[in-house]
Every structure is written in structure tokens, then in C-alpha cells.
Computed example of a mutant assay.
Amino acid sequence: MTSPGDVVCWLCERPLGSKVQLHHIVPKAKKGRATVRVHPICHRTIHTHFTNAELARIDGERGPLREHEEIAKFLRWIAGKPPDFHAPTRSAQR
């Protein structure tokens, strides 16, 4: 049995705080059902840089997300922040 303090964010791997969101690793719109726990800021970052179609194509793999240039930059920046840290999420330049 895990305690809440043992649970980490699927994307950034920091401990989860009091605010947790569920991310469908394959979007619901693409028939995905499996979810993972993420910080709200990490969830927004994923959806800022990836469309539902792109997320469906990578089929729930975390590696391609973490290797994306902007997300990798975000992960370096967020690494030392507390679990409930919040900041506005920048829009992607598409």
C-alpha cells in the first residue's frame, strides 16, 4: 500500500501535492481509458504542446513527451519547485 507522499507525477516525477489531475495517456476522444496522476501545471503543459491526435500516435508512451524540446525545458525548470507550485502555462508556438 502506498501513502500519498509516495505518489509522484507521471510527467515530472515530483511528489504530488494536494491538487492532482488525471491525464488520459491516450485521449478519451481517441478511445483511451487509462489515466495517470499529474500536477495541474504538468497536465496543461502536455496539452499545450501535443494535440489529441499526437498523443494518440505516441500511444501512452511518456518518453516522447519528456524528450520534446519545450517539455524537456519545462521539466528542468519545474524540477526544484514544491508539489503545489502554480504558474501560468505559456501557449505553444505552432
Rank of each mutant, 00 (worst) to 15 (best):
K30R: 15
A34C: 08
R33M: 15
L16D: 01
V36P: 06
L11R: 05
K31E: 11
R14Q: 10
C9S: 05
C9N: 00
C12P: 01
L11T: 02
T35D: 10
R44T: 05
I41F: 03
I25L: 13
T48F: 05
C9E: 00
T51H: 08
K19S: 15
K31I: 06
T48N: 13
L22D: 11
R33E: 15
P15W: 02
G17W: 05
K19A: 14
H49A: 06
P40H: 10
V7G: 01
C9L: 03
L11C: 02
L11N: 00
T48C: 11
G32H: 08
V36C: 06
V7R: 10
W10C: 03
H43S: 09
S18F: 12
H47V: 00
H24G: 09
H23W: 05
E13Y: 00
W10E: 01
I41Y: 01
G17F: 04
V20N: 02
K30V: 13
R14F: 06
H24E: 03
V38H: 02
R37N: 14
T48V: 07
H23Q: 07
W10Q: 01
K30S: 15
V8K: 05
H47S: 04
W10T: 01
K19Y: 12
Q21R: 14
V20Q: 11
V7M: 08
F50D: 12
R44Q: 14
H24Y: 12
A34R: 15
L22Q: 13
H23D: 05
R37I: 06
A34D: 14
H47Y: 06
S18K: 14
C12V: 01
G32I: 10
I41C: 08
C9H: 01
H23R: 09
V26N: 05
G17S: 09
P40G: 12
W10N: 01
I25V: 15
V20E: 06
C9T: 00
H47W: 05
V36K: 07
V36T: 07
K31R: 15
V20A: 09
A29L: 12
R33L: 14
C42W: 00
V38A: 07
P27I: 06
H43W: 09
T51A: 11
H47D: 10
T51G: 11
R37F: 13
R44S: 13
V8N: 05
F50A: 09
P40A: 10
H23N: 05
G32C: 10
C9W: 00
H24M: 01
V20W: 04
H24C: 04
C42L: 03
R37Y: 14
C12A: 04
K30H: 15
S18H: 14
R14T: 02
P15I: 00
V36W: 04
T51W: 10
Q21G: 08
H23G: 02
K31V: 11
R37L: 13
E13C: 00
P15D: 03
H49W: 14
K30F: 14
P40W: 08
F50Q: 11
I41E: 04
C42Q: 00
K31C: 12
L11P: 01
H49N: 13
V36H: 04
K31H: 14
A29P: 09
H43E: 08
K19M: 12
K28N: 13
A34S: 15
V20D: 06
H49F: 10
V26Y: 05
C42M: 02
L16G: 00
K19D: 15
R33I: 15
